[in-house]
């Protein structure tokens, strides 16, 4: 129980930091000056505020945020400012200053997990070899590949020599083309999956088939050639655009709203450790 409460506490505190970092303004609101940049020098930033100019010394704790069209601020250095930019400048609230350090902490934690991943692989493959499971020789290849990969990895950034060549062979001449080969399998998978999907077995499948037919023909020149003599709204490219950008957009936006609200709900449940199913066997 103590372990669970500790996990819940750490989860809450970590989530609280990210939540506050997101919602708390990056500069102290009552000491922040908003205006239009008039001039920038090495010592001070001059802003036009309500028709009057105001000089703000470029102190170390001063943060400058440029306003984007969405209203969300973007942190900039004084050298990046141009006359006419809409900015807000004020003393930092320090939350954002810690962000890089906190993110680095999680990167270190993630790096530890790579060790766990390697242990998992070693467990599986050593088991395969020990028990002489089918294709156990593939597991021997795994250990050889790990050894070879580590040696080849030492050649990263090296300008010349056999280590550099080993790096090129493993990463550029072997892994990259093999990755491309696997990726190219997608074309065949799409063909077989489409065949199954387009068999008309229900009203929905017929609708899907019809809309796919319109969109596909609308994307290629033959679609326009077939329907160019019809009124514009009956031409296949126009119909394809309508399906893609009107009908489809409405459905996708509907999904987006649901997903965003759902993401807030899942985030809240995990943040407050209310998600019983995943990590806790009962509610805290």
């Amino acid at each position: 129980m103590t372990k669970r409460r500790l996990i819940a506490l750490v989860t809450f505190l970590a989530g609280l930091y990210y939540f506050l970092e997101f919602v708390v303004p990056p500069t102290v609101p009552w000491r922040t000056v908003r205006g239009e940049v008039a001039a920038v020098s090495e010592e001070a930033l001059t802003l036009r505020v309500d028709g009057q100019t105001q000089q703000i010394p470029l102190a170390r704790h001063l943060k400058i945020y440029r306003e984007r069209p969405t209203g969300a601020p973007e942190q900039v250095e004084p050298a990046q400012l141009r006359p006419g930019d809409r900015v807000s400048a004020g003393p930092t609230t320090y939350l954002s200053d810690w962000l890089t350090s906190v993110n680095n902490f999680f990167i270190v934690l993630g790096a530890m997990a790579w060790g766990m991943g390697l242990i998992s692989l070693v467990l599986v493959h050593s088991g395969n070899i020990r028990r002489r499971r089918p294709e156990w020789y593939g597991s021997v290849m795994f250990f050889l590949a790990v050894g070879g990969g580590v040696v080849a990895g030492l050649g990263y950034g090296v300008q010349s020599g056999w280590l550099r060549e080993a790096n090129d062979v493993v990463f550029n001449y072997l892994l990259r083309p093999m990755g491309s080969t696997v990726f190219s399998l997608l074309a065949f998978h799409i063909a077989t999956a489409s065949y199954r999907a387009f068999r008309i077995r229900s009203g929905e499948a017929a609708l899907m088939m019809a809309s796919a037919f319109v969109v596909m023909l609308g994307q290629i020149p033959i679609g326009l050639w077939l329907t160019h003599s019809l009124p514009p709204y009956m031409q296949l490219p126009v119909m394809a655009q309508w399906v893609l950008y009107i009908a489809n957009s409405a459905a996708v936006r509907g999904m987006w709203f649901g997903m965003m609200v759902g993401a807030i709900a899942v985030g809240l449940r995990f943040w407050l450790s209310l998600e019983r199913g995943a990590f806790f066997d009962r509610e805290l």
Binding site: V261, G262, R269, L274, G277
Partner: peptide, 24 residues
């Protein structure tokens, strides 16, 4: 889409999860 987020609630039928769905 969001049915994925509702999955835990749907499968476990826990009051907390179901309440979360209604809130959504």
């Amino acid at each position: 889409g969001e049915e994925l987020y509702a999955a835990s609630a749907y499968l476990t039928r826990e009051p907390t999860m179901l309440g979360s769905l209604v809130g959504q």
